[in-house]
């Protein structure tokens, strides 16, 4: 399987603050990858690096086998729907499609036209008068009709109402089913991504916390509930993700390939949202996948 995005030691610093740090990541082709994390975790920074809007301070990133925004050919391979889906307010929908046709060699007119027709939009309407959902659809149409290999969307549904959100994701998923396009989209709301993503990257505090196929992530993460006990007594093959204790009870989230045999635990499966939330909690030293030495390890004491 080839990677559509490959980052090695990628970092971006704004003056003295690292917005993204030591990010090593491989996103396989043919997937819909969700990039989740709280606001300010570095999602937009990572996506901006991927489309070449930003240049890395450290490390390297390759998208579809090339340096982001490295030339017209590279730009043609990657579509981008930016946060808040910017459009030219005083240009009409028709003008936007013409813009796309003029600026993209692989432009697919029929895709663009069909989408606009199905959305029931008047092509002569100015983009500035569209609703948020319609504007997002227009931006998505531009991104899809460009026929990219990878379509990157930054918080595409964050500002949409539930109906517009659903419609947007429907169009996006339909495009994935119909055309051979990989998708990378970010969101700070996991439930937006639950249905559409089959690959997940969790970004917290400028670092990648966990990454992998959704199915296998769900299969390998468990919530253990049982009488209170110390977390360092866990078997070596169980990685502690998060832990919380009352005076009687301990609730742990662990990641393990092996079955959990200890009868003291009540084992439950985790939903995607709980899984992501577990990673967003205060990190402990042994949850760090790459043993980051720059930050002091934090004790889990709750």
């Amino acid at each position: 399987m080839t990677a559509v995005l490959e980052a090695r030691g990628l970092g971006k610093r704004y003056r003295r603050r690292w917005a993204l740090q030591d990010c090593t990541l491989e996103i396989p082709a043919g997937h819909v990858t969700g990039l989740v994390g709280p606001n300010g975790a570095g999602k937009t920074t990572l996506l901006s690096l991927a489309v070449g809007l930003l240049a890395p301070t450290a490390g390297t990133i390759e998208v579809c086998g090339g340096v982001p925004a490295g030339g017209a050919e590279q730009l043609a391979k990657v579509g981008f729907v930016a946060q808040d889906t910017p459009t030219y307010a005083n240009l009409s929908i028709e003008d936007h499609l013409r813009l796309g046709a003029h600026l993209n060699p692989r432009w697919d007119r029929s895709i663009a036209q069909t989408r606009i027709e199905r959305l029931g939009l008047d092509p002569t309407q100015r983009a500035g008068k569209l609703s948020g959902g319609q504007r997002a659809q227009l931006a998505l149409t531009l991104g899809l009709a460009k026929r990219p290999e990878l379509l990157i969307l930054d918080e595409p549904v964050a500002s949409l109402d539930p109906l517009a959100r659903r419609e947007f994701l429907q169009v996006l998923m339909e495009a994935v089913a119909e055309h051979d396009v990989s998708v990378l989209l970010s969101s700070h709301v996991v439930s937006d991504l639950e249905r559409v993503c089959d690959h997940l990257v969790v970004l917290v505090d400028s670092e990648v916390r966990v990454e992998g196929e959704v199915e296998s992530l769900l299969a390998t993460h468990h919530r253990l509930t049982g009488p209170r006990r110390e977390t360092d007594s866990l078997p070596a093959d169980q990685h502690l993700v998060s832990a919380s204790h009352t005076d009687r009870q301990s609730t742990l989230v662990v990641r393990t390939e092996a079955p959990i045999l200890d009868p003291a635990w009540t084992v439950t499966r985790l939903g995607l949202e709980d899984l992501v939330l577990a990673y967003m909690e205060v990190p402990s030293a042994d949850t760090r996948r790459n043993g980051d030495a720059r930050k002091p390890a934090l004790e889990v004491l709750r």
């Binding site: 925004a69 730009l75 930016a82 030219y88 460009k146």
Partner: peptide, 10 residues
Amino acid sequence: RLVWNQSVTR
């Protein structure tokens, strides 16, 4: 951010 992501270099 829209126009720089068409297939035209900055």
